[in-house]
Design a protein around this nucleic acid. Structure first.
Lengths: 347, 347
DNA sequence: TTGAAAGCGCTAACAC
DNA sequence: GTGTTAGCGCTTTCAA
């Protein structure tokens, strides 16, 4: 099974089959350039001698395309594998790529921090997930002049796939505030730049910022206003990353703060799930004593007890849409995908 | 921001900076070949004019290495993103790759089914996850003669990373059978080749097969024997893939079968989680009326109610180990990682 | 320390 | 329908 010979090259194959390299190349790339019979014969022969087609590196150097699509992620790859939302997104992307015979290369700014590998030259296109401020790799990607589509954030010149985060956030906050909780609090994701779980301050509250977190926060606060709530900045927690550990920490802080919240509006299902967990540990009944709502509708959301009220944002669909547009070269517009309030028993 | 110019080439840069291509190349690749001052100057200059280093495709064609490591997966990529175990594995792998400035290429047999892209020529090494019977891509990978390490299965000539599945399965079955259930059943993963959830038959029961599923089954049955249980083949369900939907289906079938099982030995936490879910729906109390144990110790396992008794197999560590060995060229041995029975309240 | 040049494996334009 | 060949961008040997 093991193999230590060098793989065959097109040139050698041409020698063996006693014809020119162009003919072999054509057999693989341009069926119309030679007779079907000859092509068939060459292909069979190649299979027999163990030549599986042209080398990607050489072909890509020559043609300037590789069949590889890259996903550019903000954080470390490892983190994105833990995040259920990123996961669904990647599912959607890879479904489309596989169907279209494209390869998936995962790129993160974490990798190329110091040494540049030049990897950005390889892919034929890029799906960029999440804000890329100060990411040097992103700048090199832009330099390639290849198709780019962004997800969950916008850059003027590039097509993007998004949902209406503000409206969705408004909807879910509106839903839960209609129940007239006495002391609502917000567990927000990536609201500020700190690495720590913490509350935010008044001057941070009205930051101008186009990130999805800020749009969601705006939606929450708009709903609060309509219901005559004033949610102060010290009732808003910042969770730096969407991990279960950090979420638990924030939930614990919130549920041991005074006044005790009877309503937690969470910016991700992951955070909501952690909050549910803490509430159970503290023997706080949900939804009777505490209402909890999430965001995203990850698969786990409907399996929790109680099942989570949340915003269904079809991350998988987002991934599929972005990948499809990229592959089909439909790179004009900004796409807004629908999202939807899903009411379950946690509220 | 958008860029439509072609990226600079080393040759053009040499012209602009008025020196030879070799010097530029050396500045990037071999600092010892030129004065530090000159190198510094070249690097700064390159940055200024927007040359970010040599093109990967060309460099890789020339040097025969790319800085890319591929993970070869059995199923579709999309499936592997849904599977929490694969997920943890990929986390571990990507942690190590990022630390070592390697890129991650995800390859699945699903992609290259028909058309060959030659992608297998690019990576410097391969991490192969899960049995690769009849996978044509795997054969092409082998042909490359590049380093290969396998996870969760073995091929004689190649290094591998595994756990002792039989022992682990024995341990957990032994634990739960000590409670003297009256009617234990097994929910097994990928026991046979069928696509459907179904029970297995007597002649399939003693299949000779080196897959992890069979080793686990052997462990279960060995424990059963020691406790004088005879678990018949019609008490063993086959779940074709580790998805929640299929797991629910199997759990439902098992919990509506006669005699009603009072103990479910599940081959994955995912299956156990689904079983827990069905049990709740049917108002069967766990662990009083029904004991459930899983396998893997995925993060969710400890958050379920009741928390799941399972085998902790540190998938993340498996990924890290494999990636590290591959990168460091430690390709001699078969590694068996420890695993551990974790008793929680589901049993 | 630097420059010239061969060639990695392939594709496509062009000639036959 | 088939063969010849330039050159994609780079690294590295060898000579200066």
């Amino acid at each position: 099974m093991k193999n230590n010979n060098k793989p065959l090259t097109l040139k050698k194959v041409a020698e063996i089959l006693n014809c020119s390299t162009a003919t072999i190349s054509n057999a693989f790339n341009r069926p119309d350039q030679l007779s079907a019979a000859l092509r068939e014969k060459i292909l069979t022969e190649c299979k027999r001698i163990g030549y599986h087609g042209p080398n990607l590196t050489a072909r890509s150097l020559r043609k300037g395309e590789s069949g590889v699509i890259a996903v550019l992620l903000t954080d470390s790859l490892a983190y994105h594998f833990t995040d259920p939302v990123a996961n669904q997104l990647l599912q959607g992307i890879s479904e489309v790529l596989e169907k279209n015979n494209k390869q998936l290369l995962m790129l993160s700014s974490a990798t190329n921090a110091q040494q540049t590998s030049g990897i950005e030259a390889l892919p034929d296109g890029f799906i960029v997930y999440g804000s890329q401020d100060h990411n040097p790799l992103f700048e090199r990607v832009v330099q390639q002049g290849k198709p780019i589509i962004t997800i969950d954030f916008d850059i003027d010149e590039y097509p993007s796939v998004n949902i209406d985060n503000q409206q969705a956030a408004f909807d879910i906050a509106n839903h839960v505030l209609e129940k007239k909780p006495e002391s609502p609090a917000i567990l927000g994701l990536r609201l500020i730049h700190s690495d720590r779980v913490c509350r935010i301050t008044d001057d941070e509250l009205f930051d101008e910022n186009e990130s999805i977190s800020r749009r969601r926060l705006d939606g929450y606060l708009k709903a609060a206003e309509q219901h005559n709530y004033q949610i102060k900045s010290n009732r808003i927690w910042h969770v730096p990353k969407n991990t279960y550990e950090l979420a638990k920490q924030a939930a614990h802080e919130a549920l041991t703060s005074h006044p005790l919240p009877d309503c937690l509006i969470c910016m991700s299902d992951n955070i909501a799930s952690a909050a549910l967990n803490i509430a159970r540990e503290m023997n706080i009944r949900v939804p009777e004593q505490l209402k909890i709502v999430g965001f995203d509708d990850i698969p786990e959301a409907s399996r929790l007890s109680p099942p989570l009220t949340t915003i269904c944002q079809k991350s998988r669909e987002k991934g599929k849409t972005a990948a499809l547009k990229l592959i089909q070269g439909k790179l004009q517009d900004k796409t807004i995908l629908p999202s939807q309030l899903v009411i379950r028993s946690s509220s």
